[in-house]
Design a protein around this nucleic acid. Structure first.
Length: 470
DNA sequence: GTCGTGACAGCCACATCTGC
DNA sequence: GCAGATGTGGCTGTCACGAC
């Protein structure tokens, strides 16, 4: 068996053709008669209890060689052999199913590009995932034809005439069954891809980042592959069903589903604007109402605990800088040494929306930052770099992981860079700083964004109630 | 005030690199 | 070989801002 902690795989091949790295767990047996016994034991709660206590590594968990050598196996050879015999059929089934799953995933990965290129199509009955490849395929599509005709006539008819046309078509085709040939499906799939590419190009011209474009493409592609029909035939019901199924399958939150709805809305609204479709099917799908939760901030004691737990000058300087300036982590990692004005205790940050602003830091931050910079031996212009060579610029995830780790050592859950920003804003408002100045400090264009922070601290309400009404 | 949308933060699993 | 530090990528969730 091999795998990182928590993931155990049963390997039956005699010749294992992969590397055993230092972050893997290996347990073997020369006897085939007890292999299932060992496999199931390593999945048992008894073993997991041992694993939990013997685990090493703060970032990536693993077991040392000594810990593996000392795994306590309640072993009696005869009982193990008898057990193995009893469960061998079940274990073989499990192994076969896992192998079948791997094959299906492989098949899916091969077919996805073919589906997108129109070289393969899905039939309309996705419930059984039946795939027809280079073979005859038919699809009943009366409603889709009616919609396509109405869409093409929209320029020549007014609303009343359009409604009448749709009613006549529906009535006349009541007892008619329309069958679509496979070649049309090929064409439609290719058209879908062209529409998607055009949409992505349009968004790129509008200035969307590559990451946003990739997210858009991925989300829309999944919808088109799953529905496997021409874009002009997709109905509100299709999208509703897709969103509902996706939420159930992935156990996604309302926010995720609403994000997807927004992307579909943007895509179909663009198709509508470009006269590719008559009306966006997403128009009738309303915003998914999401829960509004109160965000936590760090207390003074927690901030001091975090400072005390720092084991190097860099981390201390980062925490002081974040808590003193309230800048975003994305802004922090972009800073260079030359951006800091120690005399005025200020610096210029390049913030969200490509806007520059000046932020200020306190005397303690100045001292800790100077101590950190004076101790640096590298010539990297970045303000914060990795501790070890080659001392590259710290990334967002690097700062996140570091701060989260400090929080874990103090049993302080959910400590992340943005919490310092929220804490600073809340403290400033608590201490009576004018909201307009907090707005400037945080770099908000609109003051209602700053007001989100003003309602965070329930103590404000309590104190105000005591002052004015109590 | 609400909605739509772009950008980015948060989180997780895993990979890679480095020093001891 | 061990253990920590940091990076990468994918997905989910939140923030921010302009438009209506």
């Amino acid at each position: 068996m091999i795998g990182t902690i928590g993931n155990k795989y049963f390997v039956t091949e005699k010749n294992v053709n992969f590397a055993i790295k230092n972050m893997a767990l290996l347990k073997t047996s020369k006897s085939m008669y007890i292999m299932y016994f060992l496999w199931l034991y390593l999945s048992s709660w008894d073993y997991k209890h041992y694993e939990f206590n013997a685990i090493s590594g703060s970032i990536q968990k693993f077991l040392s060689l000594d810990a593996m050598r000392n795994i306590p196996v309640p072993f009696n050879y005869d009982i193990a052999v008898a057990f193995n015999k009893q469960v061998s059929n079940i274990c073989r089934c499990i192994t076969n199913l896992k192998e079948e799953n791997i094959q299906l995933i492989k098949q899916r990965n091969e077919l996805l590009p073919l589906l997108m290129n129109g070289q393969a199509v899905l039939n309309s009955d996705l419930a059984v995932s039946y795939i027809i490849y280079k073979d005859v395929n038919i699809r009943i599509m009366k409603e889709n034809i009616i919609q396509a005709i109405v869409a093409k006539m929209q320029r020549d008819l007014d609303c009343r005439q359009m409604a009448q046309l749709k009613a006549v078509l529906t009535s006349e085709l009541h007892n008619v069954e329309i069958i679509e040939k496979e070649e049309c499906v090929y064409q439609q799939t290719q058209e879908n891809e062209q529409f998607l590419n055009s949409f992505i190009s349009a968004k790129k011209i509008e200035g969307c980042s590559d990451k946003t474009l990739a997210y858009y493409r991925n989300t829309i592609e999944r919808l088109l592959v799953t529905l496997s029909m021409a874009i002009c035939h997709i109905t509100t019901s299709d999208i509703r069903t897709y969103l509902s199924d996706y939420q159930e399958e992935h156990q996604s939150s309302k926010v995720t589903i609403d994000n997807m709805r927004r992307i579909f809305s943007s895509f179909f609204a663009w198709l509508e604007d470009e006269d590719y479709i008559a009306k966006s099917p997403v128009r009738r799908i309303h915003k998914v109402k999401t829960d509004s939760l109160v965000k936590e901030v760090l207390s003074d004691e927690q901030l001091e605990q975090l400072r005390d737990s720092c084991t190097n000058k860099r981390d201390l300087a980062i925490i002081d800088f974040l808590s003193s300036t309230g800048i975003r982590v994305g802004e922090l990692v972009k800073l260079n040494r030359e951006d800091i004005d120690f005399h005025e205790r200020q610096c210029v940050v390049f913030g969200k929306g490509n806007k520059e602003r000046v932020v200020y830091f306190n005397a303690r931050t100045k001292l800790h930052l100077q101590q950190y910079l004076n101790g640096r031996t590298d010539d990297n212009p970045a303000l914060f770099v990795s501790l070890h060579s080659p001392h590259t610029r710290l990334t967002i995830s690097g700062v996140e992981v570091r701060i989260r780790k400090l929080g874990h050592t103090l049993s302080m859950p959910k400590v992340h860079p943005h919490k310092f920003r929220r804490t600073l804003a809340t403290m400033a408002i608590d201490k009576g700083m004018p909201i307009e100045q907090v707005q400037r400090l945080l770099g908000h264009v609109r003051i209602d964004t700053t007001l989100h922070y003003a309602i965070v601290n329930q103590n404000n309400v309590k104190l105000a109630h005591k002052k004015y009404l109590g």
